Lab assay of single mutants.
Amino acid sequence: RLRTTITPEQLEILYQKYLLDSNPTRKMLDHIAHEVGLKKRVVQVWFQNTRARERK
């Protein structure tokens, strides 16, 4: 499986959303995924990875 490439514009939106809520609901994940044009699962994993990186 190929990795999904996230553009700088998408990253900017994801980080803005992360600052508002680091643990979004399913509904919010759907909305964010639609807004940035990525699959919900990709957005979900991005949030998981970002939370894990923050803990280190």
Rank of each mutant, 00 (worst) to 15 (best):
R1Y: 12
R1K: 11
R1L: 15
R1I: 10
L2I: 14
L2A: 11
L2M: 07
R3W: 14
R3V: 14
R3C: 14
R3S: 15
R3N: 13
R3F: 12
R3T: 15
T4D: 13
T4P: 13
T4N: 10
T4C: 03
T4F: 05
T5M: 14
T5F: 05
T5N: 07
T5S: 07
T5L: 08
T5H: 02
T5Q: 13
I6F: 14
I6A: 06
I6N: 02
I6Y: 12
I6C: 11
T7M: 07
T7Q: 10
T7I: 05
T7K: 05
T7P: 13
T7E: 12
T7Y: 04
T7C: 07
P8S: 09
P8G: 13
P8L: 15
P8C: 15
P8F: 15
E9F: 04
E9G: 07
E9C: 02
E9K: 08
E9Q: 10
E9L: 06
E9D: 10
Q10C: 04
Q10G: 01
Q10F: 00
Q10W: 01
Q10V: 06
Q10S: 04
L11P: 04
L11F: 05
L11I: 07
L11S: 11
L11Y: 11
L11M: 10
L11A: 12
E12M: 15
E12Y: 04
E12I: 04
E12L: 08
E12G: 07
I13C: 10
I13G: 07
I13W: 08
I13F: 13
I13T: 11
L14M: 08
L14C: 01
L14K: 01
L14W: 02
Y15V: 09
Y15I: 13
Y15K: 12
Y15H: 08
Y15F: 04
Y15P: 00
Q16F: 12
Q16P: 00
Q16Y: 04
Q16K: 09
Q16N: 07
Q16W: 03
K17N: 14
K17F: 15
K17S: 09
K17E: 11
K17A: 10
K17Q: 13
K17Y: 09
Y18L: 03
Y18K: 02
Y18A: 00
Y18C: 02
Y18E: 00
Y18N: 02
Y18R: 01
L19D: 07
L19T: 09
L19Y: 05
L19M: 12
L19W: 05
L19H: 08
L19N: 04
L20K: 08
L20V: 11
L20H: 06
L20D: 07
L20T: 10
D21G: 06
D21S: 05
D21F: 05
D21R: 01
D21M: 07
D21N: 04
D21H: 03
S22N: 06
S22L: 03
S22C: 08
S22D: 12
S22F: 05
S22R: 04
S22H: 07
N23F: 13
N23T: 05
N23P: 00
N23C: 03
N23E: 10
N23G: 06
N23R: 09
N23Q: 12
N23M: 09
N23I: 05
P24I: 02
P24V: 02
P24M: 02
P24C: 00
P24A: 01
P24F: 03
P24K: 00
P24W: 08
P24G: 01
T25P: 08
T25R: 02
T25Q: 04
T25Y: 00
T25L: 03
T25S: 06
T25A: 07
T25F: 03
T25K: 04
T25I: 04
R26C: 14
R26T: 14
R26Q: 15
R26G: 15
K27W: 04
K27E: 14
K27Q: 10
K27R: 04
K27I: 10
M28C: 03
L29G: 02
L29T: 06
L29Q: 07
D30A: 10
D30F: 04
D30K: 07
D30R: 09
D30P: 03
D30G: 10
D30N: 06
H31G: 14
H31P: 01
H31M: 12
H31W: 07
H31A: 13
I32Y: 05
I32L: 09
I32R: 00
I32G: 02
I32H: 03
I32C: 02
I32D: 00
A33T: 04
A33S: 10
A33H: 02
A33I: 03
A33Q: 01
A33N: 00
H34P: 02
H34I: 03
H34V: 11
H34N: 10
H34S: 11
H34F: 09
H34K: 14
E35G: 04
E35C: 05
E35R: 02
E35H: 06
E35W: 04
V36N: 02
V36M: 04
V36H: 00
V36P: 00
V36E: 00
V36F: 03
G37M: 03
G37P: 03
G37C: 06
G37F: 03
G37D: 05
G37Q: 08
L38W: 02
L38C: 06
L38S: 03
L38A: 04
L38Q: 02
L38M: 11
L38G: 00
K39I: 03
K39H: 05
K39T: 15
K39A: 14
K39F: 00
K39W: 02
K40R: 10
K40A: 13
K40E: 15
K40G: 12
K40C: 08
K40S: 14
K40V: 13
R41N: 14
R41Q: 14
R41M: 10
R41D: 15
V42H: 06
V42F: 04
V42I: 10
V42K: 13
V42E: 15
V43Q: 00
V43N: 03
V43K: 00
V43D: 01
V43G: 00
V43S: 01
V43I: 09
V43T: 03
Q44H: 10
Q44R: 06
Q44P: 02
Q44K: 07
Q44E: 14
Q44L: 05
Q44A: 11
V45D: 15
V45Q: 11
V45P: 02
V45S: 05
V45M: 11
V45K: 05
V45R: 03
V45W: 06
V45N: 04
V45H: 11
V45E: 15
W46C: 03
W46A: 04
W46S: 01
W46I: 00
W46P: 01
W46N: 00
W46V: 01
W46R: 02
W46Q: 01
W46H: 01
W46Y: 06
F47Q: 01
F47H: 00
Q48Y: 09
Q48N: 07
Q48H: 09
Q48S: 10
Q48F: 01
Q48C: 08
N49H: 05
N49E: 15
N49D: 13
N49M: 06
N49I: 06
N49K: 11
N49V: 07
N49P: 02
N49T: 12
N49L: 05
T50I: 07
T50R: 10
T50D: 02
T50P: 03
T50W: 08
T50F: 06
R51D: 04
R51L: 12
R51T: 06
R51Y: 12
R51H: 13
R51P: 01
R51G: 08
R51V: 08
R51S: 11
A52Q: 14
A52W: 05
A52M: 08
A52F: 04
A52R: 06
A52H: 08
A52D: 14
R53K: 10
R53E: 14
R53F: 14
R53M: 09
R53D: 14
R53L: 11
R53V: 11
R53A: 12
E54R: 02
E54G: 06
R55D: 15
R55L: 14
R55T: 15
R55G: 14
R55F: 11
R55A: 14
K56T: 11
K56V: 10
K56R: 05
K56Y: 03
K56M: 08
